[in-house]
Design a protein around this nucleic acid. Sequence first.
DNA 1: CTATGGCACGGATT
DNA 2: AATCCGTGCCATAG
Length: 472
Amino acid sequence: MLLQSQHTSLRPLTTAHLAQTMTLLELTGEELRQKIEAQLASNPALELIDTARCPHCHRLLSGSGPCPVCSSPNISTGGEPIVFVSPRKDFSTPGRGLSGDEQPSEEWTAAAEDLPTFVLRQISPELEPADRQLAAHLLTSLDEDGLLSVPLLEISRYHHVPLSRVENVQKLIQHAEPLGVGSSTPQEALLVQLEVLAESRAVPDLAALAIKEGMDLLSRRAYSELGRLLHKPTSEAVEIAEFISENLNPFPGRAHWGEVHQASESYPVYKDADIVISCVNENPNTPLLIEIVSPYAGSLRVNPLFRQALSLAPTDKADQWQSDLDEAVLLVKCLQQRDHTLVRLMTRLAVLQRHYILEGDALIVPITRAQLAEELEVHESTISRAVAGKAVQLPNRKIVPLSKWFDRSLHIRTALIQIIADERRPLSDTEIAGLLIKQGYFVARRTVAKYRMMEGILPARLRHSNSNLPMR
DNA sequence: CTATGGCACGGATT
DNA sequence: AATCCGTGCCATAG
């Protein structure tokens, strides 16, 4: 890694270089985009050029070969993941609110219009001309999650119209794609989606109730408590929660969503993934496809014309030009290195965590940043920086923070959830600890209690009432 | 007496 | 150097 920087033909910039590489590493998509835009605007030595794209899937083609995804469906990379860097634009498909089902609303991606415009166009036929202003006001008040950021009452006052009229317009908006957009709360968005979904397909009866009454339980994943609320066994509560998480989206403006609780806690809110992992042809047996999402389209390089022109620079500008050039070279190098690091990191991770990626939390293998750093022969802090704040989109379209991949106890906690979901009678922490140890997870009773709490599961004695009902 | 949560310590991780 | 995490000990509730 370090060697790479040394064959720079330029003056020794290594310290600055290293410093900047680190900074770039920890930048997440949007921040990086801003940084690059700022540089592009201020530094004439930099230019953004188009690079070849696969005519089919629009991915950037690295090098000269054919597109790894569509041109060669039978990739033989010996099980190694395929990695490449592709521009962010190609992924943003915010229309995909409801996963799984139809209504892909390609229009959204095709036309690069923004969310308000997109929705307005859908509802305008049904919109009373008199309500256009209201609709416009509502739509411009959407936050990035597609939720309303101002109270309805405020809007009704502002326009001097009855609240009910505003509500009607909101209802119209909510039923446009992405479904639930313009709701005041995630809860409301879920309910709208559920209602619409129910028209075309069977939904669990209690899902609505669970959302209305047990939203906090859902987000805390307190499934047994939810079960009590619904007067159903925990297993059924889990099913309902799964249904909701699979089919509904509390943030309609976001393309996909990961863990429910993620949004409410102190994690940064991820607009979009920085890394996308998918399966070629949606087939889990093929190599994994890893895409490092770069926030700009095309590739960044030092403008060769500028370099040539340097020798012709007027003497008073020469210094300025030279430093612009240096800076540009540095930035490009650093970006390359950032990508390189991320690619190496993700490749290794994808190999190690293949089962986790494809089959879920239970199969994650605990790994520390330090171990990975050793394998990749980089400094621990490099890994830390690379991981910090990044989000990964898994093949099942969930977005999880990359840091979750380094969760030391995730697999044990999923085992614990499984045990509790399967229990016929509420088991005490001690008993659970015993079972876990039998499965090879050596944890103390005290630790079981901690994990339970992390997952929002109540203590045994409070799980009584319903869990001992017969389960199928 | 048993089950569980709080506090705090020490080692691992970042 | 700071933080996180698993665990032991102890108080408390049932």
